[in-house]
Design a binder for these strands. Structure first.
Lengths: 330, 330
DNA sequence: TTGTACGCGTTATCAT
DNA sequence: ATGATAACGCGTACAA
């Protein structure tokens, strides 16, 4: 009952069936003008009849390029990345490139295995959503998205995180809040630093240390950080991402505080669930799909030109929803 | 200033440096015992010095296998898949396989491009999280996860969706609910049908049509479906996934109903946000990571044995949280 | 317009 | 234990 897969056709098979040489088949399939209409038709018929598809591995070996790019994700479960990937795919497809995704899971071994796909020509370029270049590969044919890469030779497509954070906090101040707290991510993280800097900017330079906590961008860590902040009695908190903002809301509620009447909460990213949470989250929206599109465009241009891709800064938006309100609670 | 990437080393370069033939280098790198310790050391030194890595494309062409598998996702933004992918990666890595991810985005063109990666040997096997086999490829070296595949030759790793749905609804009945509604997914979808069947099972065979609505597994569609159900005054609703459950809660609240006092809501999947929502969602947990692990195991076994993989049914769990309560509202 | 033949970087066979 | 060489399947000079 078990059908054995028939050995896959090669170009020579198609050539034989069409009564031509492999060279002609290759040319016909590549759309070369050096093929008569009549032979082209015969070849196309043979391809249709047999269901032949060109072997991308052999072709890639010969051409030294695969027309594939690989997107490296640190955490495939992070809802931030989905839309970025869609943007990348959109632009790549437009330019005839395929997109593969690799999940490093912050595991050096997996990252190395994926980097090898790049080093050995299985993919032509890399989009880094991981915030760092895999060790041991040259900083060329790479582009970063969202998070800055330590290697200055690598262009990054992002928003102005510092300005966005400043804007979010300024908004809270405009609502009359005077004790604005901040929950950041891991302190070593560049995004954390940029958004923290924007927080300080808005406050005029420095903040009460009792009003600043750092988590790890998870809901649980936001919850813990908010519990630690509550004794200082902030009336508003700016969180470095939406997950921690949700955690902050949970902690506030657990302590009997109403959001937004007694505590305003601002997130960052506008992940898919942000608008569906109760209350819907006020947050900074990153143009994720555009970021992906631009990143792909920058990378693919660099593949052709061989010259250094330029970084791009895209506009963010403050999305005001129901997790924030006036300082006096109405 | 622009460093040109040095042309990549080939095995012949390493051979030259180590003063041996490429055949010996190949053997040494493959761990063959037919290499003297002394030459092996020289070769390893050369590899370290140069940073040489074997070209997987050339190797794959020669060996006719890549030791890579490709996971096909219908929607990379769907939070259900993250943990499944982790399970797949875990097992694949254990067996020395790499994992790539392809997002079809329900776009036939992208799906075809990804299927070609498989057809042409860039990857050895396919894990389908899409619910269907890409057209035009033989049903071998494939395994499905979660959703049944139309082609009976393809093994699927899943839970017993019908039994799980029955269990969820039975739990609601045990709480004293008599008007239990259901929000399903697209009616053509197999998961929708199985979970709907389980809903009917628990009710003893049939349900009031006014208590059944179908959405598209999105939050918005759950919201719309719940609005349509409200006139029938259900005291509980079983939703075919967590997103629609969240939508149902939003709709109930918008109509002034308290969850769970006036309406109990059960979801399905236990996506990462389910426990963090307010109220935390009662739902059916699928053992996502295990499903991924088992799927990888089944697929990789099939790659060796050439025989048909066997389907697997894994245990689900009803997770009771705060979105459900007794029918009398306390 | 078409065909012949070589090379892309490996691995395996067959010598030695 | 090691080396020469033929494949793997394709693309492209070069020849015809």
């Amino acid at each position: 009952m078990d059908q054995f897969a028939q050995p896959r056709l090669k170009m020579a098979d198609v050539a034989r069936i069409a009564g031509v040489s492999v060279a002609t088949v290759s040319r016909a399939l590549a759309g070369s003008p050096l093929v008569s209409e009549e032979t082209r038709a015969r070849i196309e018929a043979a391809v249709r009849d047999t269901g032949y598809v060109v072997n991308q591995v052999a072709s890639g070996l010969r051409l030294q390029r695969s027309r594939q790019i690989l997107v490296l994700l640190p955490d495939i479960a992070n809802p931030f990345f989905g839309e970025v990937v869609l943007g990348i795919e959109e632009e790549a497809q437009r330019q005839g490139f395929g997109v593969l995704i690799g999940n490093t899971a912050r595991n050096p071994e997996r990252e190395a295995a994926l980097a090898r796909q790049f080093q050995t020509g299985a993919v032509d370029g890399l989009v880094l959503l991981t915030g760092h270049k895999p060790p041991g590969i040259p900083p060329t044919r790479l582009v970063g998205v969202s998070e800055h890469i330590a290697d200055p030779a690598i262009a990054v497509v992002s928003i102005d995180n510092r300005a966005a954070a400043r804007e979010a906090v300024t908004y809270l101040l405009a609502l009359g809040h005077r004790k604005v707290a901040h929950i950041g991510g891991p302190t070593g993280n560049i995004l954390t630093q940029q958004r923290h800097a924007g927080f300080l900017d808005a406050l005029g330079g420095d903040a009460d240390p009792a009003l600043v906590q750092f988590g790890d961008y998870s809901i649980a860590s936001g919850e813990a950080a908010m519990h630690a902040l509550l004794p200082a009695q902030p009336t508003a908190v700016f969180c470095s991402n939406d997950e921690m903002a949700i955690g902050a809301i949970r902690a506030a509620r657990a302590s009997g505080l109403h959001v937004p009447h007694e505590l305003s909460v601002v997130g960052f990213d506008d992940i898919p669930f942000a608008g569906a949470y109760d209350p819907p989250l006020t947050t900074i929206r990153q143009p994720r799909r555009d970021m992906g599109r631009v990143a792909a465009r920058v990378l693919l241009a660099a593949l052709d030109d061989q010259d250094m891709p330029r970084p791009a800064v895209l506009p963010h938006t403050l999305i005001v929803r129901a997790s924030t309100g006036p300082a006096d609670g109405k």
